[in-house]
Design a protein around this nucleic acid. Structure first.
Lengths: 350, 350
DNA sequence: CTGAAAGCGCTTACAG
DNA sequence: CTGAAAGCGCTTACAG
């Protein structure tokens, strides 16, 4: 990689003049500038942005922690993030996986050492350790928590979905279809799971419907096997539910599979509601009725929040930062998509 | 962020001494070192790695270009990449999306300017522009192309799957089951699509089976609608195929949907083979027979190649680089997973 | 053991 | 218009 010094030497001018010419600053004659420009182009000169970052105290990079990209949901969130970051000239992202939760703080340390200007954080799979939270505090730059939230990160901005409202919408949809015997396979371990099942309970209560605890299945170790087992148990109970609300579309897929494996039909025998409106929801038959989220919107919003905070930081700079910004909490709206996995309850026996 | 200078001032020693103490180098008394260490810890001192990068001429970052993370395939590739990079202390990745293909070269420029040490490249969706290829050449550091390949990138190392062999395996599986009327919904636009359909043609020919051109469907604009239409046409033809080989599992999902929508059954009426063994393949009913790839392995392998090249570059450094390394091309094995979407052909009429 | 100085690749006041 | 010099935050020979 040819350096500024090299270009300067070839052109027979000083480094300072070369710098001005290439960055479009005043103070060089037009002829000199053109000569420098052409030499630089010939030699494929590329300025070293690491130097800029050190000089300005801003790296124009942001850090991103995430768990996995196993479906289109997180993928689309990142898509929305990158789109807005790109426009804001934060065209590059420093990314990292928290491969090992117990080393989560190492990842954060790396971000700090690389001097990323801000952090977009999909929280780790398990509750963050004290060491992690401590390192988060050391970071001292804007942080936006995305999708899931955790104890210990309340002080940071959060962007996610209206999970609670979604839980209500899924449930009321079934109630409106005449279902009264509604089960729920939920996931209390994570914040979205808790919110969704709370929405469920709220809706049931509001409509005067009993919540049967044997129909309430909490996923302990998220995975197809356990979900499948819960579904089979629910379907083969003496008093089986006529509808099942699922934590998300993948859970709904497992329930659908279990139903078919039992020789039962969806929606004729059981109605199923998913959550997420993932790519799979409209690809499968019957198409899944589900609660659509807006992952691209979440990504965009998260970055906009971050950029706002970054601007605030840059403006204050040396000023007093006595007014800690109130943490924003944005939950993007969700909406029920009624497809083919739900239909009116037939018998209302109870 | 407290700087080295600040820590030095607080400790009343020189910056040089502070640097030595913190980096564990000899040349400081144990007492001084301890004092410096504790002050640094108190003030949450974090070395600025951007400075290291400039000094060493190595940023210990690598660039990653990709299109999307809409399913678990690319997600798992990245997972494998990050795992190996992490172990090699390339713990941070600079990532970028080629949001707009026509600006792909800008993305590469950014990588060059950020001085990433190497590049992992999922090629852009369309054939790279000359400007893109030119910028790739300017990069002048190790590059590994992943999953897809393109005209113009032959000089770089490549890591992907045995798509051709997979195409053969899918086809021979059906032939062994007694199918003779086999259709194929393929995707000639991209390299994996071409290889898979070539495998198909090869297998058919080897077994003396005719390839009916009306049963050969090339996806022009990859998307559910077109695929669904192809499937319906195939299924409702007077001389309909008894089996369909699909470009990948998502295509198989659309074909499955079309089959069910036509009132036909899989595998009773039609057998379907997918490609990829994505998460969806075993979640759907009937479970998809498919060609399993090894995305995690691809990711790991790609990074290992990159690391090997990086080591070579570092050793040579100022030496003559007259022996350009022969580009490696690694295609990880695939394997047929026989599940429930294929079964012996019933009638052998033709 | 300790400090002053040069240097990484640049930018930006400041002299000439 | 042009160059020499200081500085960003460090590391590393080199004197003392």
């Amino acid at each position: 990689m040819s350096s500024l010094a090299e270009i300067a030497r070839i052109c027979g001018v000083s480094i300072g003049a070369t710098s001005k010419a290439l960055s479009g600053k005043a103070g060089v004659s037009e002829t000199t500038r053109q000569r420098i420009l052409s030499v630089a182009a010939q030699h494929h000169y590329r300025p070293n942005r690491l130097v800029h970052a050190i000089q300005k105290g801003r790296s124009m990079t942001i850090g991103l922690t995430c768990n996995d990209f196993r479906d289109d949901f997180s993928g689309r969130i990142v898509e929305g993030m990158l789109e807005v970051l790109y426009e804001a000239a934060y065209d590059t992202i420093v990314i990292s996986w928290d491969l090992c939760v117990h080393e989560g703080e190492k990842v954060l340390r790396t971000f700090t050492e690389r001097r990323v200007d801000g952090l977009l954080m999909f929280p780790p799979g398990d509750q963050p350790t004290p060491a992690y939270l401590q390192e988060l505090r050391t970071f001292q730059r804007p942080i936006v928590v995305v999708d899931q939230t955790f104890a210990g990160v309340e002080e940071y901005a959060f962007v996610g979905s209206q999970d609670y409202e979604g839980g209500i919408a899924a449930t009321e949809h079934l109630i409106e279809l005449g279902h009264r015997r509604i089960a729920n396979i939920f996931h209390r371990k994570i914040s979205t799971g808790r919110a969704r099942v709370e929405g469920f309970r709220h809706a049931m209560e509001r409509h005067g419907l009993p919540v049967r605890e044997t129909w309430m299945r909490d996923i302990q170790n998220y995975g197809s096997e356990e979900i499948y087992r819960h579904a089979r148990e629910l379907l083969t109970m003496e008093e089986a539910p006529t509808a099942i609300v699922c934590f998300n579309d993948w859970v709904a897929m497992d329930v659908l599979a279990a139903t078919q494996d039992c020789g039962r039909r969806v929606p004729e025998d059981v109605s199923i509601v998913g959550f997420g409106d993932l790519r799979i929801a409209s690809a499968v038959r019957p198409r899944l009725t589900t609660i659509a989220q807006d992952p691209i919107g979440i990504g965009r919003h998260a970055v906009r929040h971050l950029l706002t905070q970054l601007r605030a930081v840059n403006q204050q700079e040396e000023e007093l930062r006595d007014t800690p910004p109130t943490p924003v909490s944005d939950r993007l709206p969700v909406r029920l998509v009624h497809r083919d996995s739900t239909r009116p309850a037939v018998r209302q026996s109870f």
